[in-house]
């Protein structure tokens, strides 16, 4: 166990805690994550009383070996991508803590909570205004996008 790197240790601890005490509406695919600690799949349910009530989304977390100093790469995957002004149709999420405002004190759990809160605070289901252009031109990795966080309200 001595060979375990600090990032692995932290991911292992995070996985354990997330499985033990997950936030409401959030479940992690523990078997897949424990097989490959750098690729997590998190299932998320629309919070009751919001626009996304009853909907199910799938989030994918990709970690580098520099985690937690590097932010994880988080995207929606699967058939159901939430229609939200900060979520592009290819699953990319426009969220400051995933890039510029990342801090090593943040965790998978905190990111999940942020996304749930982002979805829950949505008042109108619509795609970002530059969705089609972005989807055509963007890099596969959302972290390579120079995000312009124009709306802090949601």
């Amino acid at each position: 166990m001595a060979a375990m790197s600090p990032s692995e240790r932290r991911l292992q601890k995070e996985l354990m805690s997330l499985m033990k005490e997950p936030p409401p509406g959030v479940t992690v695919d523990g078997d897949q994550a424990s097989q490959n600690l750098t690729l997590w799949t998190v299932h998320m349910e629309g919070v009751p009383g919001t626009l996304y009530e009853g909907e199910k989304f799938v989030l994918q977390f990709k970690f580098t070996n520099k985690y937690p100093f590097d932010s994880p790469e988080v995207t929606f995957i699967g058939n159901n991508i939430p229609i939200h002004p900060h979520v592009y149709s290819n699953g990319h999420i426009c969220l400051s803590i995933l890039t510029d405002d990342w801090s090593p004190a943040l965790s998978v759990q905190s990111v999940c909570l942020s996304i749930v809160s982002m979805l829950s605070s949505c008042k109108e289901k619509k795609r970002p205004p530059d969705n089609s252009f972005y989807v055509k031109t963007c890099n596969k990795n959302p972290k390579k996008t120079k995000w312009w966080y124009h709306d802090d309200s949601v």
Partner: peptide
């Protein structure tokens, strides 16, 4: 005391 960076 917990170090929030390494969570140790």
């Amino acid at each position: 005391i917990l170090c929030t960076i390494c969570s140790d």
